[in-house]
Amino acid sequence: MWEQQLVNAISLGSVYALFALGFTLVFGVLGVINLSHGGIFMWGAYTSLALVTWFSMPLWIAFPAGMLCAGCLGLLIDILILKPLRNRQANHLMPMIATIGATILMTSLAQGVFGADNQRYPANLFPDLEFQWGETRLTLLQISITVLSLLLTAVMVWMLKRTRMGLALRAIAESRQTSALLGIPVERLFHMTSFMAAALGGAAGILIGLSFNAISPFMGQSMLHKGIAAVILGGLGDVRGAVLGGFFLGASEVFAVTFLSSDYRDAFSFGLLFLMLLWRPQGLFGTGKLREG
């Protein structure tokens, strides 16, 4: 019983971490809250679904293709919406409002194209294997989801810590002007960041779609709220914090359902978010200085 919940918590938490990672990356580098991350997540799930059902592609092609499409969507939003606002040096609330608009647009388009009802992946898309360890059950799907999420997260963290591009991104997060003066192609890296973050968001969408086997135009909204909770728990803009926040949120949800009640599962994550903002707005790993948001 207990081990089973732990397994479920890790599996769910790894996807939350993946989603939160993209969200926090954009905030860390661009200094922008991108509220269209949920919409991108949802479109990632739908594109892979469309590829699988309309073009009968296998999942191993549809997954990266879905990520790619989500990434391009993120890039598009960066070019069309975030870049003009950057150039204008708009008030920090403006990107939030504009990306809310983009989300409404994306949700409405998904509703128009795919309908408002839940959609499923075709049966037998994924081999229905199950492993048992005493009382604990593990499906192959759960393992693949967890491994893929952890792998993508690890690649991202490695990229940030060990490559020249990661170094440049961290420099930009520190100071945009100085980085530009030092010859870092700031604008290109902004596009790159938006693309990568959105691709991670799209991957999370596909994995959540697979794990619950339900895709709907409204799945992005609740995920966005959870991503925000995870990111705030860990500290906005902090990569390590987003990953740990994702796992913490996954675990707290699974255990809240087991030991409390499923009705209040979502209220629980927001309660956490709330308390965190009151107690330590900078999050568990944030630095002492609170960014003037």
Binding site: I228, L277, G293
Partner: peptide, 8 residues
């Protein structure tokens, strides 16, 4: 302030 207030 700012985005923290909006999210809270």
């Amino acid at each position: 302030t700012g985005v923290y207030l909006a999210m809270a």
